[in-house]
């Protein structure tokens, strides 16, 4: 995808809102994968939080379920 102008938002509200839900879910999946990889590569929660633009507490609360086993808390 070259740019977002190529995104076509459906005119039908049901379809457009379904697309929003699907995009959020896709973003959640990408976030889970990125956080899991970062922790595996030794990133701390502080670094992850800063990179995501959220507080360390918020990052840990929302994303710690994606931590690989034996990750320092």
């Amino acid at each position: 995808m070259d740019n977002l102008d190529k995104l076509s938002v459906p005119k039908d509200p049901e379809q457009a809102l379904a697309a929003v839900v699907a995009l959020r879910r896709l973003a959640d999946k990408v976030e889970a994968e990125a956080v899991s990889n970062a922790l595996r590569q030794g990133w701390t929660w502080s670094r992850i939080a800063q990179a995501l633009g959220i507080s360390k507490q918020a990052a840990h609360k929302r994303l710690s379920v994606f931590a690989p086993l034996n990750t320092p808390q």
Binding site: M1, P10, Q15, A18, A19, A22, R25
Partner: peptide, 16 residues
Amino acid sequence: QYSEALSSLGLPIGVT
């Protein structure tokens, strides 16, 4: 339905 919803935006099938 997630896949179809994304394709309605022009995103490729299978992106999920």
